[in-house]
Design a protein around this nucleic acid. Structure first.
Lengths: 208, 208
DNA sequence: CAACTAAGATACGGTGACGTATCTTAAAGA
DNA sequence: TCTTTAAGATACGTCACCGTATCTTAGTTG
């Protein structure tokens, strides 16, 4: 079979090295996004990448290794610095990045890994260690630390609990609604939960 | 094969009706708890229940139907009333109930359904409609509404966002750590996030 | 006790993935 | 150009599960 994932016919050229690996990576992410981590198979990835199983086994022995490689290669490096002086806006923005991941296959593959976490903690740990940490994907944590460093937030309010609020709320929303929250909802998470938790409740008049 | 899930030999008696259904329910929950929703199979459930596939197909056509039936039968009815006058304690307690679910197979099966939600929103919706809602499993929501009704919390603080905080944080913790949070951590979630969000920040001196 | 119902055991062909082996040949390097 | 490397195609036996069919027999009901 020489059907590729885009339905095109077999190519004249034979892909090698980086080009081939990249095609396999893409296939692995699409498979994980559509079928979940549990639905990954060597046959499925090979089929979608338009290559032979042999080429997969030459480099990896299990599908999840392909997926982790693929995510590491594709995961965007976090752009470190938040905006100058807009805590609320930066928080919403950092959550929008997270929520926006639900739109593209890479993000959906990431959520698939997260969904698998309860049953396969090892995979989640590897994802954290090999993908998430190196790429600095920390979302609200980065923002909160930034403003705490500027003295705009009480540093003692920045704890392992409070830095997780945004991610937790977005995850729960996605689980409950089957899609990512829109910007308006993200703003409500920031206003109703995150800001009060760091001592800057918008509804308390003189806060900050 | 007459191996049962407890390894006992085949029984003399042939189970029927409720007794058999109950054994199948238990098997379905154990299977889901161990292998996830995606890992459910008619063969697996039948094997574990020590019965024949035929007996399953006689009543259900897909494994997930068995699971939903099983969860409905086993899910405990929420005991409606929180304690008299201890908001913080009641919040911690309601989260402890949720966190405690991670310990037994029924809870793990529930988390398995939740994990499947992103890929199978229909299943999650059915779980909500057929199990969760009828059994009134609403955790912190129940507590917050109770105290809002008593005027101890500003009712305008009780929103679809704030009632989700506890569940969201517990879920995120479980995903990140592969286990449920202990009581101390639950107390931190209450103190650092939920109470501030409902306008009762423990760190603001004269709050409430 | 006789009749009926349903549990249980077993077998079937089909499918899809497993991991490995073999062979051809395109692409890269010397 | 010649050699080497690895991509690609294909085939293999194995396994697990699918859904259905058949037959026996235990348990219930009249």
């Amino acid at each position: 079979m020489d059907e590729r994932n885009d339905g095109s016919a077999a190519p004249k050229t034979r892909r090698r090295g980086e080009e081939l690996v990249s095609a396999i990576h893409e296939a692995a992410i699409l498979e994980a996004a559509e079928n979940g981590v549990g639905g990954l198979s060597m046959e499925g990835i090979a089929r979608r990448a338009g290559t032979a199983k042999t080429s997969l086994y030459r480099r990896w022995s299990v599908p999840s290794d392909i997926l982790l490689d693929a995510m590491y290669s594709h995961f965007p490096q976090e752009r470190a610095a938040p905006g100058a002086d807009d805590l609320r806006g930066d928080l919403v923005e950092s959550l929008a990045v997270l929520a926006g991941l639900g739109e593209d296959p890479l993000g959906r593959a990431m959520f698939a890994v997260i969904a698998e976490s309860l049953r396969d903690p090892g995979l989640h740990a590897r994802f954290e260690a090999e993908v998430f940490d190196p790429k600095g994907g920390r979302f609200t944590r980065t923002v909160l630390l930034h403003y705490a460093g500027q003295g705009r937030i009480d540093p003692s309010r920045i704890t392992d609990v409070t830095v997780d609020i945004g991610e937790a709320m977005v995850l729960k929303y996605a689980v409950d609604h089957g899609r990512s929250p829109d910007r308006e909802h993200l703003a409500r998470i920031v206003d109703e939960v995150i800001l009060p938790a760091v001592g800057l409740d918008p509804r308390r008049a003189g806060a900050e």
